[in-house]
Design a protein around this nucleic acid. Structure first.
Lengths: 113, 113
DNA sequence: CCGCATCCTTTAGGATACTG
DNA sequence: CAGTATCCTAAAGGATGCGG
């Protein structure tokens, strides 16, 4: 989802665009993180516990991407042992709304084939 | 989007599932093909003309995947030169509906940041 | 004209081990 | 605890050329 050369007509305007969404959402773990954070802030280890299949490297990468996108906020506490908490931003909750929309669609269209 | 190990609660049931959609839609070209076919059947060359950036190999791969998914139908005419036409199936129009839903969401949520 | 064969590059994602 | 660092594999996608 990161390549150039397309035209898009969102908003009625035909604009040469990159075919990018401003949010990375189609990768393997972003949707799961959105879900995991929907009930409030979580720390790194909690997220790992809720997603035992993701390695720490990939989870960290996902969270950094989401932070860049502005969908999660990161708060690091200077303690020992360290503690870091993640939380959805308003923008993150909007994107979660899209995920919910897709789930609704799936419920209505995917059950019967 | 093709890995195992997840739980999904679509339809209220918690089922160990593969995290697959039955339709490949997050790849690079499927959405564009859906759009290109939304107004009726097109032949291979027409699709290429509407998407000058996709190579024939990748377009053919995409169409074959969509045919397997049951979202497009393919009709080959035994002529010379050969002619092949593609068309959305009812299922394909459903998936296009999801795409439209996402576009609506984008219009409402992505214009102002 | 349609699209397959071949080869190649890029990238996402995983395994494992290690630090402040 | 919360990540990095390194290395690795698989898969998507692109370039080019050929064939029915």
């Amino acid at each position: 989802m990161r390549t150039a050369g397309f035209r898009n007509d969102i908003g009625g305007e035909q604009v040469e665009c990159t075919h990018d969404l401003p949010y990375r959402i189609g990768d393997k773990w972003t949707a799961h993180v959105l879900r995991a954070l929907q009930d409030g802030r979580r720390r790194f280890t909690q997220l790992r516990a809720e997603m035992p299949w993701v390695t720490p490297k990939v989870l960290a990468e996902t969270l950094r991407a989401m932070e860049r996108d502005g969908t999660v906020s990161r708060e690091a506490f200077v303690e020992n042992p360290p503690r870091v908490e993640y939380e959805l931003t308003a923008r993150g909750r909007k994107v979660l709304g899209l995920l919910d929309l897709c789930c609704d669609w799936a419920r209505e269209n995917l059950v019967e084939t």
